[in-house]
Amino acid sequence: MLELARSLAERAAAGRPLAVATVVGVDGSAPRAVGATMFVDADGAVVGSISGGCVEGAVVEACHAVLEGADPAVVRYGISDEAAMGVGLMCGGDLDVYIERLPAQDRPVLEAARDGAEVSVGTVVDGPRELIGTRVAELTDDRLRDSGAEGVTASRIRAEHEERARGGRSVTWRVQCGPLQLTVFTDVALVAPRLLIFGAVDFSAALADAGRLLGYHVTVCDARAVFATPERFPGAHEVVRAWPHVYLAGTAVDERTVVCVLTHDLKFDVPLLALALDLPVAYVGAMGSRRTHERRIRALREDGVAESSLRRLHSPIGLDIGASTPAETAVSILAEVIAARSAASGRSLTETDGPIHRAGESALVAG
């Protein structure tokens, strides 16, 4: 649900009835991960995707049924179904899709997610019929006891949900309640990760555009005021005129922050990289030829940067895909960022075997 917070918030504010379908489990290979969302309104408009096209038609039908009064429920689609040919999920995996009518009380959290806040929603998606669709925040001990789900408290379920949410990923999990088991989906919307681009050059403009498309909050920074202008970087959320290392020292970063240094000028690069490589960020990359890279490494060593820190530096920046233009170079850089974030090889999938999607994206986690 939170994946489409902006569109859902707009339609919820208009009072439109909405049915929301969310992937809450993936078993085997599937096009999209847990948390993927689509929704259907009463006029038949469809927004989003839960399978890249494979089962959307069947899910739309189920959404219309919910809008017409059907109970919320998890529906499984996949190769194991007799109807697999009909729904078209031929990639060999199974999707568990939770379908519900959007509750009116979700509007504030959708608006918060739309505005960039870090929020989470926990929903009971399987268990006693009277609890399905209940938000974790609304669970009470009396409701659990009345439904036959005993031996666990609402506060424990809320605490478990909050712990899952702190993990930063949408996930489905189970909790044993006496003779019954509840399945809970924790939907998470994080604050956008930061992409810090240093150097107001053409490559930076292309990288800002591509980074924004991938969901980053993009900042371009350069000390040269004549180049660091918002008009030159429409894809950036902010353009900062400051010495790069001074700006980096005073701005907030975290373990998801990406730092890309595109200046290839030692007077900017050395103090900036010396600082960046000592910060707990996800990725540090620097543009330049191999000769520039060698001079930069020598200068960083002379500046006292440890070998262990130098090993974190991605330089020359990007994957070897034959990129030449600024737009192609942006693809090369962000491909390396994604590979580094996922601890993936960066090799062609034709040269690898096993599941395409990693185990961390799959279905149910025991409570």
Rank of each mutant, 00 (worst) to 15 (best):
L131T: 05
F39T: 03
G57P: 00
V97L: 11
A62I: 07
M90V: 15
D81Y: 07
G92M: 05
V26A: 01
D81W: 08
A30G: 06
T153H: 10
A137H: 06
V87A: 14
D141G: 04
D43L: 10
D126Q: 14
D142P: 02
V152Y: 06
S147Q: 02
I157P: 06
L144D: 06
G151P: 01
S120E: 14
D115V: 07
G148T: 04
T153Q: 09
P31V: 06
P31E: 03
G52H: 04
V59Y: 03
V136W: 07
R143N: 08
A83Q: 13
D81C: 13
A36D: 00
G78Y: 03
R158Y: 11
A137N: 05
G57T: 09
Y98F: 15
E118T: 14
E130A: 13
L18T: 03
V124M: 08
R158H: 14
L139N: 08
A58Y: 06
G35F: 02
G151W: 09
V24T: 10
D41M: 00
Q105I: 14
R101Q: 12
V97N: 05
A149K: 05
H64F: 10
S51P: 08
Q105P: 11
V66K: 06
V119M: 12
G57C: 03
V119D: 11
V59N: 00
G92C: 09
A159P: 08
V125F: 04
D27K: 12
R145N: 12
T123W: 08
